[in-house]
Design a protein around this nucleic acid. Structure first.
Lengths: 259, 259
DNA sequence: GTGTGTGAAACTATTCACAGCC
DNA sequence: GGCTGTGAATAGTTTCACACAC
């Protein structure tokens, strides 16, 4: 990352682990629900259960933010909501643009979860003039020609890409050139961006593939549960892997991808 | 998080790290693209670049699967595609149901990425009779009453929940009771499931919040670059962790590290 | 020479367990 | 007594660097 500023005094440790950052939104969501029910305080145990993590992890996570709890009592809900929001940068509101208004883009535009956190959809953008006509979620869909102007007029620094994979890099480049420094990418492709630009990606089919892996293992375990002895051998052996044999036996590759 | 892993000795090769599993789909995607261009072999360096990771990580990942490369040459693309597909359980095809056909559910139903990778959408299900009339993506939307029958008739073990948060747990319970053992949850809520059921979640607004965190820090760093002395909260000083920046979640940003 | 495969080292994250404060 | 905050222990992941196979 540059600037070998390795030894900053850090008035307050600016070193929140990435894993912790990724959980803060989870805590925030649980806390918001408690807040809506006017619950005044909550213990690490209760909050952890509501957020789906264990309490030791939660306490450790909070310890990176500061000492916001009261021993023997718990955490003040409102206060924590504020502190976490501030830490995540949600006390300001972030204008975002969504590029690519197909099914997914439209779903995102309609998704209430953005507005209710600190995000405001500043514009919907699509390259197709046909799409660019009809409004979605009460907003006009603007043509991609306007992209640079929209970004700069609205001071947008976060962009959401929901285009087909083929256009994603190109859209990404334009977003970055126009000043966007954080990108949420839904297109199933790897984006390359200059230093200093953050990309997070969500790939729906990747999540399913990970589930399939575990699912397959479950199925294999059932049959192998009885006798763990019979290891490999059979054709459809789940495990096997047979680190021993290299490309030897296996029949040929049945084109798995129907495209 | 998910992974209701049983603590078993792991019969031999059954020890693929979770982080590796999460990257296999990435490699598979890159390999599929190469395969379509009829590229016969690829080096770890090239493939790593295409997948957005570094080559040492990729080689280590592959080493858990077996020795499928050739020293001095690289990997055979078709062979690797097959091996990874098999490892992920994609050589069989998995029927999935999508429950909740709102904007997001409809987008998922139309999403081509499922069908192209061993997944078949067996049914679309919604509780609203109005929605249940119109077909989406060429498929009829069936009423939630039919859920149990659909699951069992099609041998579905993977379910996708795209309902509002309020109905998600209830839908989840019914899916599980009907035999589903893997769930991909898009509803912004924590699902509780019995042992042995895997849940993965995708929360669109969480991703944005994580971006906002980094975005805020970038902005802060600019002005605080000179001196770090604008803290208001006095509390703690939490030593330890330095002021490292960079992130490195799972397979996100193309790892750019000072070499 | 080239590029894989892998122990070992470095780093990051989670869990334990208990001192310290309410 | 109850619950937070946190060092220390453990577990998991990434990176290094080089022997070894082609």
């Amino acid at each position: 990352m540059a600037t070998g500023r390795t030894h900053r005094p850090a008035t307050r440790s600016r070193g929140i682990p990435e894993a912790t950052v990724a959980r803060l939104p989870l805590y925030l969501r649980a806390l918001t629900a408690l807040s809506e029910r006017s619950v005044p305080t909550v213990s690490s145990e209760e909050l952890a259960a509501a957020a789906g993590v264990n309490s030791a992890k939660l306490r450790k996570d909070f310890s990176y933010l500061g000492s916001y709890g009261t021993r023997g009592v718990g955490y003040d809900v409102e206060y924590l909501v504020y502190q976490i929001s501030r830490e995540l940068g949600l006390t300001q509101d972030w204008p975002v643009v969504i590029v690519g208004i197909g099914n997914l883009g439209a779903a995102l535009a309609n998704y209430g979860g953005f507005a209710s956190r600190g995000f405001r959809v500043a514009a919907l953008i699509d390259a197709d003039p046909a799409v660019a006509g009809r409004p979605i979620a009460g907003m006009p869909v603007q043509h991609a020609d306007q992209l640079e102007k929209i970004i700069s007029d609205n001071g947008v620094s976060i962009g959401v890409i929901a285009t087909p994979a083929g256009s994603a890099q190109q859209v990404c480049d334009r977003l970055v050139a126009a000043g966007v420094t954080s990108i949420l990418n839904f297109a199933p492709t790897v984006l390359s961006v200059p230093e200093g630009v953050d990309v997070r990606k969500v790939d729906l089919s990747i999540e399913l593939q990970i589930l399939a892996f575990h699912e397959q293992r479950k199925a294999g375990e059932e049959s192998a549960a009885a006798e763990a002895a019979l290891e490999d051998a059979p054709t459809t052996s789940v495990g096997g892997v047979a680190a021993a044999d290299r490309k030897g036996p296996d029949g040929d590759v049945p084109a798995v991808m129907p495209a």
